[in-house]
């Protein structure tokens, strides 16, 4: 019985565009022109998704659990490319680039085929789901992720939470124990409740664009983050993708100078669902 069901599932999954008829495909667009690197999205993510604050020591040894992080890159001064940016104290602040990085919800996710127990898989609404209960902690997915956005619970961080603070945990989200992998879920708890609410209001298979916000999007002061349904032709994110000529299954999207849309590591063909808009700057000022 079990074997039969497994073979059936496999033959279905081998079809191309198996999820093509699904009404949802969650996607995101992040405008780096608008991003100021303030870190509000990171803080919001910590509060929404019960992320442990690990403290200075663990942070230093690479055990921090920020599902969303602000990566900071510096432009090398053009006249002197050999200057060590870490050392240069007089380097102008304006040279910094900020890149909010979270799970890109890849459509060809490299983390999915390598998990021995199938704890990570693709949902019909194009989310890259992580099943905490099933994870045994082999950490292969973390190695295979080119964005390195998977976070492993190296310790039981929640054991040290002082008494009344457990009251502020989000009841909709699991508190994870040691030995399992976790990552950005696109606030799946909000997606599920928004879908349920739409269903209750009589909108079958349709969540109104703008009614569903992720925690990072909600808290972004410059509204750099746009989240929505890529299958919905009228959604803001879909229109953003179209106007910047970014589409799935096209990874050589190098176009004219004035088109800013790109996806990180497009050349690896992992098909991320997050589009970034390149930052435009006046280099001569």
């Amino acid at each position: 019985m079990a074997l039969k069901r497994m073979l059936e599932n496999w033959s279905r999954l081998r079809q191309h565009d198996y999820y093509a008829d699904e009404p949802y495909m969650w996607g995101m667009s992040i405008d780096l022109n608008k991003c100021t690197g303030c870190g509000a999205c990171v803080t919001a993510c910590y509060a929404e998704n019960n992320l442990p604050v690990v403290g200075k020591e663990h942070c230093g040894s690479g055990h921090s659990m920020h599902w969303m992080r602000i990566e900071r890159f510096w432009t090398e001064p053009e006249d002197n490319p050999d200057v060590d940016i870490e050392e240069a104290t007089d380097h102008p602040e304006r040279g910094a680039h900020y890149l909010p990085m979270m799970c890109q919800q890849c459509n060809h996710a490299p983390c999915e085929p390598v998990c021995p127990v199938a704890a990570t898989y693709h949902t019909p609404d194009a989310l890259n789901a992580q099943v905490y209960n099933r994870c045994v902690g082999s950490r292969y997915c973390g190695n295979n992720c080119p964005f390195k956005v998977r976070y492993f619970n190296f310790f039981d961080f929640w054991n040290e939470l002082p008494h009344p603070l457990e009251m502020q945990l989000n009841p909709d989200v699991t508190v994870r124990s040691k030995g399992i992998m976790e990552k950005c879920t696109f606030c799946v708890q909000r997606i599920r409740s928004a879908k349920d609410a739409a269903e209750d209001a009589g909108h079958h298979d349709h969540v109104e664009d703008g009614t569903l916000l992720t925690a990072c999007q909600q808290s972004c002061p410059t509204q750099a983050i746009v989240f929505g349904n890529l299958k919905d032709e009228d959604s803001k994110v879909k229109r953003g993708w179209e106007s910047h000529q970014v589409e799935l299954e096209h990874f050589e999207q190098d176009k004219s100078e004035d088109v800013r849309g790109y996806r990180v590591f497009e050349e690896l063909n992992v098909e991320p669902c997050v589009m970034y808009l390149d930052r435009v700057r006046d280099t001569e000022a």
Binding site: S61, G62, H63, Y140, K148, Y151, F152, F154
Partner: peptide, 15 residues
């Protein structure tokens, strides 16, 4: 008892 962090592995050194 204390978790794999005691082995000093971290991200990106999962293995």
């Amino acid at each position: 008892n204390y978790g794999l962090g005691t082995a000093l592995m971290n991200r990106p050194h999962y293995w």
